[in-house]
């Protein structure tokens, strides 16, 4: 029996390393601390709206929605834009939060690429971003009908794998 101990421990390490290195896992991506927590309160100027200040009470109620942090200076956000338009056409309301960007630059960005947002707000100082635990843009949160955050996508929603995950999370929330 003792002869097998080195072999068994080696096999165990191989399995451990293989699991850790699998493509599904990104070690730089942190698990969001806000999953299953209510959406943080905020009160920020609107980017495009007839109301000057938008707060969390203006968010949709009784229906799931998406909160997307973006910035005009963020290149992956450009790449992600088509996916957002795609999600909008699917009928899910998207709230855009422009993170650490001037409202003018954010507006230019939306005019150029199209506006996927039902509501867009400007978080110029990035404090609401901190309240959401954002570490960079883009980040996308899926919120259920009760205002509870259920899923966070870190990085751009680009490619089939990322879209499939977001759609799966949406379906769960829409049930």
């Amino acid at each position: 029996m003792n002869r097998f101990i080195p072999f068994i421990s080696f096999a165990g390490l191989v399995i451990l390393f293989a699991a850790m290195m699998s493509s599904e896992r990104n070690p730089k991506e942190l698990k969001s601390a806000l999953i299953d927590k209510p959406i943080p309160a905020f009160s920020l100027p609107a980017l495009i709206a007839d109301k000057p200040i938008i707060s969390d009470s203006d968010l949709p109620s009784d229906t799931p929605y998406i909160v997307n942090f973006f910035a005009s200076w963020c290149v992956p956000c450009r790449a992600e834009h088509d996916s957002l338009i795609n999600l909008k056409q699917r009928g899910i309301p998207i709230i855009g939060v422009s993170y650490k960007d001037t409202p003018q630059a954010s507006l230019r960005f939306l005019n150029e690429l199209g506006d996927p947002y039902m509501l867009s707000i400007s978080d110029e100082r990035g404090r609401t971003g901190i309240d959401f635990g954002v570490t960079g843009v883009p980040e996308t949160f899926i919120v259920d009908a009760n205002g509870i955050i259920r899923y966070r996508h870190w990085g751009p929603v680009v490619g089939e794998a990322a879209l499939a995950k977001v759609f799966a999370a949406l379906e769960k929330v829409e049930q």
Binding site: L30, K31, S32, A33, L34, I130, F132, G133, T135
Partner: peptide, 8 residues
Amino acid sequence: LVDRYGDW
């Protein structure tokens, strides 16, 4: 900070 970003 832990409320927003976790123990990490």
